[in-house]
Design a protein around this nucleic acid. Sequence first.
DNA 1: CGCGAGCTTGATGCCGATCAATGCATGTGG
DNA 2: CCACATGCATTGATCGGCATCAAGCTCGCG
Lengths: 265, 265
Amino acid sequence: MSAVARVGTQGRAAFLSEVSEAESPVGSRSREITCAKCNLRETCLAANTPLEDLKRIERIVYARRRIMRGERLFSAGDNFTSLYAIRTGSFKTTIVDCEGREQVTGFFMTGELLGMGGLASGRFEGTAIALEDSDVCAMPYALIEEIGREVPSLQRGLHLVLAREIVRNHGVMLLLGSMSAQERLAAFLVNLSKRYLRRGYSSSNFILRMTRDEIGSYLGLKVETVSRLFSRFHERGVLEVRQKEVRIVDLMALGRVLAPSSAGE
Amino acid sequence: MSAVARVGTQGRAAFLSEVSEAESPVGSRSREITCAKCNLRETCLAANTPLEDLKRIERIVYARRRIMRGERLFSAGDNFTSLYAIRTGSFKTTIVDCEGREQVTGFFMTGELLGMGGLASGRFEGTAIALEDSDVCAMPYALIEEIGREVPSLQRGLHLVLAREIVRNHGVMLLLGSMSAQERLAAFLVNLSKRYLRRGYSSSNFILRMTRDEIGSYLGLKVETVSRLFSRFHERGVLEVRQKEVRIVDLMALGRVLAPSSAGE
DNA sequence: CGCGAGCTTGATGCCGATCAATGCATGTGG
DNA sequence: CCACATGCATTGATCGGCATCAAGCTCGCG
């Protein structure tokens, strides 16, 4: 609630518009939001599923869950039973290695899927934590598997989603392995920008749901470095930052940061 | 279906003829190496498939290909039609970003699968290059999908393989994002060691199929750093290195390097 | 109004990159 | 068989980017 409220004060129009109808009493009558009506269908498992098959798919999504900010959707080691689609809100996922090092492996927003790593071993490999009050559709894997046999597009949808996660990971590996700190941050912001755009929000004006620390963890940098980079981008007139609110003034310039040739300035 | 056609016309005669001889040590007549007899079944798509279903699965693997060292199995942008299972040999996969930076995203050995990223967009997202003369089974995705509908264990096998790749990627992200250079190299060697062990080879004594440069690219380090680290490990009596030949003298110590507490020495 | 979590900014140091040179294997042609 | 070239690996010297340490600062909240 609090998060939604906060968003509301700062950016109702922008953030809630497309969701507002489907969800107005967010989650109150979850039963009524069918896949057929869901505006996220394109990015979700149901992508490209003909209308006549949607009914069968809806059997999968029988459970909705509301996760409050800071709470966990699942934890590393939990039994894997379902994938989760984000209907509203956003999450981070983290993993810890044997030495206790923790790292953010991704930030996820509306329409994106969580929990795919759990498929590998039957237990979740990481932890998903809500960055704001969020709701998700739980989709039991057993049902996806079963219904997927009858509905090929669902099958493909799952493959697509898994493969996209792999491609995304490779992008992050590239980022972590061969980009400088400022290139990483620029890439991160450009990526966020694109994802907001695709969802119909402003691509230049958005709110960072995560802390600087979390951004740093994701990008393999320390908080101080992230903070300094924000300042530097600001000085250069590329960005305006006020707390969590970001305004990309010069998207082209931000993109250019990614080119190694810009090292000179 | 275009996939099937292409593989068929281009492939059958050419591929199989050269394979048959080359394979003599493993299984003299390539035709005869069925999934049922394949010693890689456990790690492959066919994992956990009951014997009576194996025949159907074998329809998938009708094309074998031999790739000579340095040659490409597929290139970024190529049309995706098949996944590839490595029967013998090893590969590296690389991606390049828009600025031309190239990075190794993985090293793959016997029994492991390649090309999964291509599922996301219908085109391969990266390039796979043989590190030694290798052969692979080509498995057309269209067939996997079709037969998967009848054979649940195949379906699961695919999901498993995709999910494992995701988990592996997360591990690499952790490595790149929060480990020191020497921790990365140690982790890399320990990982190789385990994989050789699982395949029945010596876990302490093996040959690096890749150059220092490629290791560096994978680990986000420069050649010089990799080389220096090898030397350092050698000085400490943890490793013996002669060119590409590695002998892990003290696996425990190598594991301990991974613990941040060892920073002191 | 004061506390604390999260953010910013500065000073300093270290790890790994970079630059540069040498060594060492493999291969090729005379 | 040697001379030479080429690709890969090692080692040293130096440099720079980011981490680290250390204060302040801002804002939301009790």
